[in-house]
């Protein structure tokens, strides 16, 4: 297994405020890491660090060399941060995923447009290619951004809460698709929906001021508490606490 990147004892924050302390994690190809944690715990800061949008105050992030023509990151941001009135078409958004310092001149090649069309076909937004993003629904917008994240064949796909604003049908399709993509690339996914992601991811990173890396997709309420990650996995009536079983779709309360 090849290592893609390594975060070594990194602290980070904004101004003089430290949000994350002494974070370490190694990401290998074919990893599928679910990032969970309470709001304000530093999930977004962690992603910014990984993606190079924020520089560490302390420690270092090491990227391992890529092969010729490879891209490191495919990034799906939270769509709530996007200006939906911006005058840009769906096809252009998808093609913007190919932007890189090497491809700065000129217009899009036929091959690139073909690739964009294939991805839009897969995501079910090809018929919207020439629409402007303001005319799309939340789910369609997510699909478009997923195409943008994938078009450059990234080694590491980073998804920030991909299941917000999407319908159940797309959510299930998305997770099945991610499982398929995981054969070719590593995936890091932030989600507030702890119950659902644990049945798809391979490992779990709990982020709350620091990071606890749980190398399994099964996690109990007690473990979460010991990681200082006060999250409710799932509530079922008056059952005091619940544990996720090794099932794909169904979640049953712990018969304790």
């Amino acid at each position: 297994m090849n290592k893609i990147l390594e975060v070594n004892n990194v602290s980070a924050g904004y101004g003089s405020e430290v949000v994350l302390k002494n974070v370490s994690i190694e990401v290998f190809e074919n990893d599928f890491i679910g990032v969970i944690g309470p709001n304000g715990g530093g999930k977004t800061t962690f992603l910014k660090l990984l993606l190079g949008q924020l520089q560490p105050m302390q420690g270092a992030i090491h990227h391992f060399p890529l092969n010729e023509g490879e891209t490191l990151f495919g990034y799906l941001p939270q769509t709530s941060n996007i200006d939906k009135k911006f005058p840009i078409t769906v096809q252009d958004v998808v093609l913007s995923g190919l932007l890189s310092p090497k491809r700065f001149f000129g217009s899009h090649t036929k091959a690139n447009k073909h690739k964009a069309a294939e991805l839009m076909q897969m995501a079910g937004v090809l018929h919207l290619a020439s629409k402007s993003i303001g005319e799309l629904s939340g789910g369609q917008l997510q699909r478009t951004f997923l195409c943008r994240a994938l078009i450059a064949d990234p080694r590491l796909l980073v998804l920030d809460e991909p299941n917000t604003f999407v319908d159940n049908k797309f959510e299930k399709e998305l997770y099945e698709l991610l499982k398929e993509l995981n054969k070719q690339m590593a995936i890091i996914m932030v989600s507030h929906d702890v119950g659902t992601i644990t049945s798809y991811v391979k490992t779990i990173a709990c982020v709350n001021r620091s990071l606890h890396y749980h190398k399994s997709n099964k996690i109990s309420q007690q473990q979460l508490a010991s990681y200082d990650c006060p999250l409710q996995i799932i509530t079922h009536g008056k059952v005091p606490h619940t544990v996720l079983l090794d099932h794909k779709e169904t979640l049953t309360p712990n018969p304790k």
């Binding site: 993606l51 190079g52 949008q53 891209t71 990151f73 990034y75 941001p77 941060n81 996007i82 200006d83 911006f86 840009i88 252009d92 958004v93 093609l95 913007s96 995923g97 932007l99 890189s100 310092p101 700065f104 001149f105 000129g106 217009s107 899009h108 943008r148 450059a152 980073v158």
Partner: peptide
């Protein structure tokens, strides 16, 4: 004329452009 696409893409989503190592 020369940099239409980079200007468009950086204006649309500068955070994404940053992850692609664009200046």
């Amino acid at each position: 004329w020369l940099f239409f696409n980079p200007i468009l893409f950086i204006s649309f989503d500068p955070e994404f452009a940053q992850t692609q190592k664009v200046p």
